[in-house]
Amino acid sequence: MSPLSTRSGSQGRRRREGAAAVEFALVATPFFFLIFGILELALVFVTNAVLENATLSASRMIRTGQADVENLEAGAFETALCGQMGVLASGCEDRTTIDVRVIPQFRNLTPPDPLATGEMNESALTYVTGDPGSLVLVRVWYAQPLVTPFLSQAVSRVSSGDAILSATTAFRNEPYDG
């Protein structure tokens, strides 16, 4: 008889009882990083969809002339935009950057990129709503903070590690009485 066959079954099981805990410890950390990364990426996509909708809704005030009639300044436009963000409205005004400008045509447009240097440079951004019939470009950037380390390295364009989400719409102002 071999020496292994003389052991009782309970002694063999006791030697393997901790194996599941060790295997779980090896797999748990990458697994939880993956789960948290997926959840955070889902939050980024939801935030981007909400930002797109808020940008379209707030831009309607410019397109219909309401912003011009009510002398809506950039800060008030940003407040209106953040009011459309729903549950994501807290801290929205601190995270949002807007650019509203009149454009000569819809094609071959190259407005300045405020993220060209890797940091948000607001010096070239404007807030001009135009006149009735003007072509207007509205761009909004929203800094979404990221927590998951690998996701912030993969998604972020700025040194702060935030994901910079953007929403853009272009339209012709309606013929309103300005």
Rank of each mutant, 00 (worst) to 15 (best):
S8K: 11
A21W: 06
M85W: 05
V44L: 08
S90N: 14
F77Y: 12
T129G: 11
A49T: 10
A154P: 02
D94P: 00
F77Q: 02
A80F: 01
F150A: 15
E40V: 10
A54I: 06
V87G: 01
M120L: 12
E23V: 07
R63H: 04
Q66R: 12
P112A: 06
Q105T: 10
V128L: 12
L151S: 09
L109W: 03
L88E: 04
R95C: 09
G91Y: 13
E174V: 09
P111C: 07
A25M: 11
L135I: 10
F77W: 06
S152E: 14
A116P: 02
R15M: 14
V102W: 07
F31T: 15
G130Y: 08
T97D: 11
G161Q: 04
E40T: 10
A49W: 00
S123M: 05
M85D: 07
M85N: 03
A170G: 12
A76S: 12
A74L: 00
G37A: 13
G18S: 13
P3F: 14
Q144G: 02
Y127P: 10
S57C: 01
A76H: 03
E23R: 09
A124I: 02
L165M: 09
L146T: 07
R157G: 10
A42M: 11
Y176W: 13
D177Y: 15
L39R: 04
G130A: 12
A67K: 02
T64L: 04
L51G: 11
V155S: 06
Y176T: 12
L26F: 14
S2I: 07
T97V: 15
M85K: 02
F106K: 08
T6H: 13
D68R: 10
V155G: 01
F32M: 14
L115D: 09
V100F: 05
E93S: 15
A42Q: 11
L88K: 09
L109D: 07
R14Y: 05
S5R: 15
P112Q: 04
S152Q: 15
G83A: 01
A167K: 07
T6C: 02
Q84E: 13
V87Y: 08
L151Q: 05
T126D: 05
I38R: 02
A76I: 00
T148D: 07
A154Y: 07
E78V: 14
N173M: 04
R13L: 14
L88G: 04
V87S: 13
L81K: 11
Q153P: 00
S8V: 06
T55N: 06
V69Y: 13
D131N: 08
A25F: 06
F31E: 04
G75H: 01
Y142D: 03
L39M: 15
V147H: 08
A80S: 09
V136Y: 06
D68N: 14
I98D: 08
D162R: 04
S59P: 07
A42V: 09
T110H: 07
L88W: 13
A170D: 06
